[in-house]
Design a protein around this nucleic acid. Structure first.
Lengths: 141, 141
DNA sequence: GTTGGTGCAAAGGATTTGCAACTTG
DNA sequence: CAAGTTGCAAATCCTTTGCACCAAC
């Protein structure tokens, strides 16, 4: 199932309407190479002759984020589609400082250990956000 | 050694000048309760009758960040002083969703494991940024 | 037809660049 | 004194709120 198909299914199942702006934003994020800000998406649309209100884009992005269909990439300041679909656990990112390549992954053991360390400090962790920077396969050596 | 003392020492040692704006920003960040944006710092200054140019604040913050004297807290959108001083390894944050309390910590094993998992994916990690959200001691139960 | 969603207006927050002038060491 | 910093101007990017109107189910 493609990202857009999966996202549209998720929206419908949760009772959200499948509107034109939502489709457009999903398409933009599906096709994007890297993280896009709501602003970027608006500009891109404008460039293609289509118009989408800036505020609407913000609202759509927020919705998609809350449904975990897209993630914010903090170190890059933008949003990307979630590539792991229904996989449980906290999603993490590897961000290449060479080419900017972004890879999403997931690791239960890491998640568990992260929570344990927090526990030792008296903190009850519910969610972790992790981004690692370094060099991807292609940019090493 | 206080944060400001440590920071001023670091700046001097690395050949950076100890200017009035830098002192002021350091003082502001030292005293701040939580994360402050450059904009916040400017406003706070203005409130105290002192004036500091916005652009200068950005530049000082960037410098302090690059020296690891302050960290950006992504999930909160602001900068805080680093509480771990010269301790090596990646600094992580626990962010309480109840009271907003922020705790910085460090865990070598976690860092190592994180890098190992990345390695398995062909990625050579150099630095990790992690923020966990959940409930601090006081906000549990 | 209802409810949820969008568009518009407006305001203000946040961030960057280039250059002339100043201050620190 | 020289190099490193700062202040200012200006531009642009980014984000939020309220309300009237519209479209998906």
């Amino acid at each position: 199932m493609s990202f857009t198909e999966y996202a549209e299914k998720s929206l419908r199942e949760k009772g959200y309407k499948l509107t034109k702006p939502r489709r457009q934003v999903l398409e933009a994020i599906e096709k994007a190479e890297g993280p896009m800000s709501p602003y970027d998406i608006g500009k891109m649309m404008e460039g293609k002759g289509r118009h989408l209100d800036q505020v609407t884009i913000y609202r759509v992005i927020n919705l998609l984020c809350s449904l975990n269909l897209v993630h914010k990439v903090f170190s890059r300041g933008g949003y990307v589609r979630c590539d792991l679909q229904e996989e449980e656990g906290c999603h993490r990112f590897l961000v290449c400082r060479g080419c900017g390549h972004l890879q999403e992954y997931r690791d239960e053991a890491l998640c568990r250990q992260e929570s344990q360390v927090a526990q030792k400090l008296g903190f009850q962790a519910e969610h972790h956000v992790t981004e690692s920077s370094g060099l991807c396969k292609d940019c090493q050596g």
